[in-house]
Every structure is written in C-alpha cells, then in structure tokens.
Amino acid sequence: MFKRYFAVFTARNREFFRDRSSFIWNIFFPFLLLFLFAFIFGNSQDMFKVGVLGDEDAYLSKPQIFELRHIQFIPYEDQDSAVKKLQQHQIDMLLQLDKRVYWVNRSSPKGYMTEQLLMSKDSEYQRREVDGRAVRYIDFVLPGILGMNIMFSCLFGVGYIIVRYRKNGVLKRLKATPLNAVEFLSAHISSRLIIVVCVMFILFFGAHWIFDTLMFGSYLSFFAVLILGAMTMISMSLLIACRTRSEELTGGLLNVASWPMMALSGVWFSLEGAPEALQTFAYMLPLTHIVEASRAISIEGATFFSQADHLIFLTVMLVLFSGIGAWLFSWDSDHR
C-alpha cells in the first residue's frame, strides 16, 4: 500500500518540477506582484495622519494644530487600539485632547515632523513615547499573496491534473493496476501540499529577506493556518474534479471558484468598510478566512486560537469537500 502511494507521490513531484514553465511561474509570479506593490505603494501619501482621543466637549477648545493644512485628523474611541495604530505607523501621532498629552512613535520620521508642528503651535502638550515598526502595505499584502498563491496552486494543481488524466486515459490505465483511489488521491494531495509548503517558505522568507516584512505572531501559527488553508483548497479542487472528464468545464469551474476569491477575499485591501452584502459573501469563501487569520497573526501578533472562527470554518469546509469528493469520485466517469 505505502509503496504504491509513494511511487505515485514521487512521480507527481517529478512531473511538477520538470514542468519548468509552471514551476517557475509558481514562484516568479508572486514575487513579481510583491515588487509591483512595493513600488506602487512604497511612498504614496505624504499627508500626516494624527489620531485624536477626547470627549466631544474637548473639540470646543481645539489645539491650534487643527488649523494646519495637509494633516488628516482621525478620531478614535479607544486609547489602546489608537496606540496600536501608532505603533504600526498607521498614524503619525496621537493626541489626547482632555489630558493634553500626545504619543509619538520614536522610530517614525513622520512622527518627528508632526511633533515639531505640535510644539510650534501647542507647546503645553505632554510627550508620551511608544515604539514599533511600521506596518507597510507590503506587510499587509504578503499574507494575501501567499493565500492567493496557495489557492491557485491547489485548485489547478490537483483538480486539473486529475481531469486531464481521466480524459486522456491515464486514470483508466492506473485503474487496471492494483493501485486504488485512496492511494492515488492521497499521493496527489500530499505531493501538492509539499510543493505548496515549499513555495510558501520560499515566498515568505524571500519577501522577509528582500523587503524585511513583519512577523509579530508565531511562525508556527502562521504556517499552520496556511497549511490548513491549502488542504481546504485541495479538497475543493478534488470536489470540482471528482467526476468530469472535460478540461474546459473544469477550467471554467476552477476559474469561477478562484476569481471571486482573488477579488473579494481581502487579498489586496481590507474588507473593513466594505458593504454588508459583500462582506457576507466574502466570508463564505475559504480564501477570506485564510487571509484574515494569517494576516492577524503576522501583522497584529494574534494567537492561533484567537482565530478559531476562521479555523473552524476552514476545517468544516475541508471535511465537507473531501467527504463529498471522495464519495463521488470516479476513475473514468463513464457511469458504468
């Protein structure tokens, strides 16, 4: 049993690495995207952002800095979350109007500039200092790109191959040997999983090395989320490919499955503030859960178990898809 499984597993790995074009594309394309975004969003806005805490009354005697142009003032209710934004350089300074104190991030050049502006206008404000590295767009988008890469690699790398094998008779040939469906499928699934994990490591640590991307949470939790996500995507792909012998239909179905996720799962932009209906739809897509959970771990330092709702959703999908897929699976789908 294991011998047969391992032989198919090795053969599939070999096939992947020898298919040079798709191999290079799998690694090259995500890097291309990262470079593109690093370039586009690297130094976009030059306006200062200042967070403001305080009761409504406090606005009656606003500090004079409010009169300056090119500064965006963003009100916050909660001091902790505002400080966190400051730590991540999403705002440049934080003002507490009632107590006349301000926080500034020691490692932020824009924080230094806004501080100079405040001192020149309202010198009575008391200084508080925080520290923390900036969360750039590239830090935000990296979990998204990893998730997207996993999605495409798993959806097309398993389902499409199986349908092609079924169509050109490879599956029928294999069926005539003692190899059974469980051995065949598990070999294909684990081969793809190993490949996805390798590519994921290359991408993550490559980006870390080139762009010095952030990781506030645990690496183990981060990769665990992505691996669970990969398994869910593979099971979805198997379900799509369980019976059909039409490559066109499968290609269509895989595109129908992948493109909404690519656009709506928060790969590129946060879903916060998106219309309610869109959010409801987005949360039915597995990629949304993969991206949100891994992003929370990497840029917010969230723990694995704090992402339980996402993880449970992915697990349920995994069990459901693979169960139905295995039940419906057919070698040659001639319904004989």
């Binding site: 047969r4 032989a7 053969a11 070999r14 050109n168 490879v170 003692p178």
Partner: peptide, 23 residues
C-alpha cells in the same frame, strides 16, 4: 490499452518503475 496516455514528464524507465511499484 488501445488508447492510453502516460503520466507526463517521465522517462521510459521511470514509467516502468512507477508501474512496477503497483504490484
């Protein structure tokens, strides 16, 4: 079989090895 394809990207010997492993 009359019409059959083989797994892609494999040499003659590798294909034989793969099938040999099934038995």
């Amino acid at each position: 079989f009359q019409h059959t394809s083989l797994p892609d990207h494999m040499t003659v010997k590798e294909t034989l090895k793969l099938f040999a492993s099934f038995y």
